[in-house]
Simulated assay, not measured.
Amino acid sequence: MSNPFSPREWLQLTMQQQGLLQPQTSVAETVLRLSYVQIDSINVVERAHHHVLHSRMPGYQPKMLDSALAKGEIFEYWSHAAAYLPIADYRFSLQRKLLQNGGKHWFEPDDKVMQEVRARILAEGPLKASDFEHSEGKNGAWWDWKPAKKALEQLFMRGELMVVRREKFQKVYDLTARVLPQDINAKAPTEAEFTRYLIDRYLDAHAFGTAAQIAYLRKGLKSAVAQELAEMLSQGGLASFKAAGQSYFYYPALQLHAPLPNKVWLLNPFDNLLIQRQRLKQWFDFDYQIEVYVPAEKRRYGYYSLAILWRDTFVGRVDVKADRQTGILLLQQLTLEAGVMVNGLDEDFCAAFDTAIREYARFNGCDRWKLVKANHKGLKQKYARQQKC
């Protein structure tokens, strides 16, 4: 169980496998590289799933994701959360879909409404929840969804419907038989195949991992993953090392081949690199929490703080908001970690930060950006005036 890489090399291997060190060329390639891209609805800036792709694809625009979905190169379903997934992995979504049949997804299934909803889509083509009338009064919160919306979601989770597109973030559903490309394998995997799939996808995307990390938010699968990892290790398909008392697994052929640029990445709270907070803390020494759900008076870093990754080190956070009426990206609070640039400004960091902010501002449809508040005197002075993109 020797360790062939230094801790810093493991960080860079993770970044490499995450598609950060080399530009990705298409949405389909990037989603496959990452194994999933989580969908999120927060829109104080461009939504998280688009931002994840922007961080890895030069010149990315949201219409590219829409196009990939329309072409059947990716599909929307559930990973550990709502996500876009590679169409090649469709059969592995059937493991969850089969569990949904005869069961419920948040709500008790209403077979009569489900039949009616299915019949309308069959007759009329793709529909969204708002296309169905609700006769019981005004819509309430999400747990009081109208019957048709509950039925649509149940049919989607069971695999009878797929999402063909989103309109103003609303799902538009059609029958799976009309959406799924004919050449896609739709045979449900065995438990062993599904377990191996989880391992392969995780190690491809993260370079190395523990059984718990690979089975992250996959209820009841940690034991099966651990057994399969042990079997693959014994057969020489995997190698392992220990760190902080945990066994980590990786492919023996893993190599670091992408150089580390002088670059700043601004990563959102749902980015694949950040989503497992304990792993982030252990390996990158970065204690990160999304504060969207924290009461305003208790927030330390801001409502929607992006993590600032410079080279292979997380150096701070920046709370962002796109003022779409004025075209200004507001850096509402920039907080550097203790010990970062304590002896003045680092010109390499400033150059990389400038580039990252300008690109992110343009991605959000802004032509200017403004630093509102910062905990670093030098940065406050440097960016005292509004900046053009």
Rank of each mutant, 00 (worst) to 15 (best):
A338I: 13
Q387F: 04
S234C: 05
F169Y: 14
K146S: 11
V294Q: 09
N185F: 01
Q61R: 15
N139M: 09
H257T: 15
L21P: 06
G327I: 14
I199S: 02
Y36Q: 11
Y36H: 10
G302A: 09
D40K: 10
R178P: 10
E116H: 11
H257S: 15
I184C: 09
E167K: 14
A83W: 02
H80F: 12
V52L: 06
S93V: 02
G209I: 09
L334R: 13
A243Y: 04
C350T: 11
P126C: 02
L329W: 08
A226Y: 11
C366S: 12
E191T: 11
V37K: 01
R47Q: 14
F75Y: 15
D110Y: 11
A338Q: 10
L238N: 08
E76A: 04
L336G: 02
F132I: 09
L345A: 12
L329P: 07
Q115S: 12
A296F: 08
W369V: 13
A211I: 07
K377H: 11
E160I: 11
K97E: 13
R118F: 15
C389W: 09
L329K: 09
L13S: 12
F75C: 08
L267T: 04
L175P: 06
F249Y: 15
T14F: 04
L233G: 06
L98D: 09
L309P: 05
K187M: 01
M157R: 10
A384S: 12
R196G: 03
T190A: 13
N364V: 03
W369L: 07
M1P: 12
L336C: 05
P269T: 03
V179H: 06
T25E: 12
A148W: 11
V294W: 01
A338E: 15
H51W: 14
S247N: 14
K104Y: 10
L267F: 11
E29N: 07
D110R: 08
Y288H: 08
T313W: 01
G19R: 09
A338D: 14
E136C: 09
V52S: 12
V113L: 05
L330A: 11
P109V: 06
D312I: 10
F107E: 09
Q95Y: 14
A48T: 04
K263R: 15
L345T: 04
K382G: 06
G365Q: 08
N272V: 08
G339R: 12
I328H: 08
V52H: 10
N101L: 12
K298S: 10
L34G: 00
L330I: 02
G237A: 04
S35E: 10
G220F: 02
Y216T: 02
S305Q: 05
W78Q: 07
A123T: 04
E167D: 06
G237Y: 04
N268F: 04
D131Y: 02
A186D: 09
K168H: 09
I87R: 00
M162P: 01
Y251L: 05
T176K: 10
Q276G: 03
E297F: 08
A253P: 08
A352K: 13
